[in-house]
Simulated scan of single mutants.
Amino acid sequence: MTLLSVNLNKIAVLRNSRGGHEPDIATAANTCIDAGCGGLTVHPRPDQRHVTPADVRTLAGLLRGRVEYNIEGNPFAPARGDYPGLIALCAEVKPTQVTLVPDSDGQITSDHGFDLTKDIETLKPVVTAFREMGCRVSVFVDAGGEGFAEAVAIGIQRIELYTGPYAEVFSRRRDRDVESVLKAFADTAQRAQQAGLAVNAGHDLSQANLGRFKAAIPGLAEVSIGHALISEALYQGLTNTVRAYLDILA
Rank of each mutant, 00 (worst) to 15 (best):
L63A: 08
L63Y: 04
R64C: 05
R64H: 11
V67D: 05
G73D: 05
N74C: 06
P75D: 04
P78Y: 01
P78F: 00
G81F: 00
C90L: 02
K94W: 00
T96I: 03
Q97A: 10
V98F: 00
G106C: 09
Q107K: 14
I108E: 15
I108P: 15
S110R: 11
G113R: 08
T117D: 13
K118M: 12
D119I: 09
D119W: 01
I120R: 07
T122Y: 02
K124R: 14
K124M: 06
P125H: 03
P125Y: 01
V126H: 02
V127A: 02
V137H: 01
V137Y: 00
S138P: 13
F140G: 09
V141K: 07
V141E: 06
V141N: 07
G144P: 06
G145P: 08
G145M: 06
F148Y: 04
A149H: 13
A153Q: 12
I154A: 04
G155H: 03
Q157D: 12
R158H: 11
I159V: 09
G164F: 02
P165M: 04
S171F: 01
R174L: 08
D177L: 08
A184M: 12
A184G: 15
A186F: 01
T188I: 04
A189I: 13
Q190N: 14
Q190R: 15
A195W: 01
